[in-house]
């Protein structure tokens, strides 16, 4: 969400500046439109944050209440419900899997873009084809295999799955960033005697750093939000934050305010990560857009 709102006005403004003959009026119109869209996209988040400070009965009231006495009760209840261990599991699953993905995706995409091997296209297609089968179609075999290996309810099972899940996307993304790097730069480096590792470290990586940040953040977001594997393969020990969120729901009784509080807490790390990496991201996400 933070990314949407951060990039939308920036890129829209950028584009309008480049359209020289349009004059001021369309530009300000575009700005207004952008703001409306941004606020439209952001309103569910505002609603969630507001609801998290309400009492359950106020959260359920219809028509909705806009003026209420804010309370921290819901946050207290969420923290008392033991959110900590779920967050820790999410941190491990997200952090380690993203690290693994980057470690594996950077050399792979380097090989596929800068030093293309035979049948590069086939390899790339194979990677992306692993994303074509819906997860629900493979959950039963994965569940049975995990059960037989005795790794159900084990956080490292999720780490392996999340790595496998994000790797194709990361390779494709990193490949497009590597392709942006002009061949002359690499040739120059080679001429100057830089070896592979040196070229990677001092030339390539700084140039694709925004792309790397964008890729890593996408992996973090996907892993952090992943629900289906987490729900089916974990129980008491390895459950992650999304599983904690649904456990706040009930088919009997009110839960909107508490769920909102839990959701606010759950989205904070990703929003924070996006905010920290904002500068890199705007560059990273618009890389490849302008040829």
């Amino acid at each position: 969400m933070a990314i949407d709102t951060a990039t939308a006005p920036a890129s829209a403004a950028g584009r309008s500046e480049k359209a020289p003959k349009r004059g001021r009026r369309p530009s300000s119109l575009l700005t207004v439109l952008t703001w409306i869209l941004a606020i439209g996209f952001f309103s569910p988040v505002i609603w969630m944050v507001m609801t998290s400070f309400k009492q359950e009965s106020a959260a359920a009231s219809n028509p909705p209440t806009f003026f209420f006495e804010p309370t921290l009760d819901q946050y207290r209840a969420v923290l008392e419900a033991g959110a900590g261990s779920y967050f820790l599991n999410s941190l491990i699953a997200t952090g380690v899997s993203t690290l693994l993905v980057i470690v594996l995706a950077v050399p792979a995409s380097y090989a596929l873009s800068i030093r293309p091997v035979k049948k590069t296209q086939d390899v790339l297609f194979f990677f992306i084809s692993t994303k074509m089968l819906p997860v629900v179609a493979v959950i039963m075999p994965i569940y049975v295999i995990a059960g037989q290996l005795k790794v159900l309810d084990n956080i490292w099972t999720l780490v392996v799955l999340y790595t496998a899940m994000n790797l194709p996307i990361a390779i494709w993304m990193m490949r497009s960033f590597f392709e942006e790097v002009p061949g002359e730069v690499l040739e120059a480096a080679q001429m100057d005697g830089a070896g592979l590792l040196k070229t990677m470290r001092t030339i390539l990586m700084p140039m694709v750093a925004p792309g790397l940040a964008a890729t890593a953040l996408i992996c973090v977001i996907f892993a952090w939000n992943e629900f289906f594997f987490a729900l089916n393969l974990t129980a008491a020990k390895a459950a992650t934050t999304p599983v904690f969120l649904v456990s706040q729901m009930t088919s009997e009784g009110l839960f909107l305010a508490k769920l909102s509080a839990a959701s606010v807490l759950a989205s904070l790390p990703v929003v924070l990560a996006g905010w920290i990496a904002q500068k890199q991201l705007v560059r990273g996400l618009s890389m490849g857009a302008v040829k």
């Binding site: 480096a189 080679q190 100057d192 005697g193 830089a194 070896g195 592979l196 001092t202 030339i203």
Partner: peptide, 17 residues
């Protein structure tokens, strides 16, 4: 880039890396 003044010895450095 120009400052990267190293002797062309990429074979060995590749092996080491």
């Amino acid at each position: 880039l120009m400052k990267l003044g190293r002797k062309p010895d990429s074979g060995r450095s590749d092996g080491r890396s």
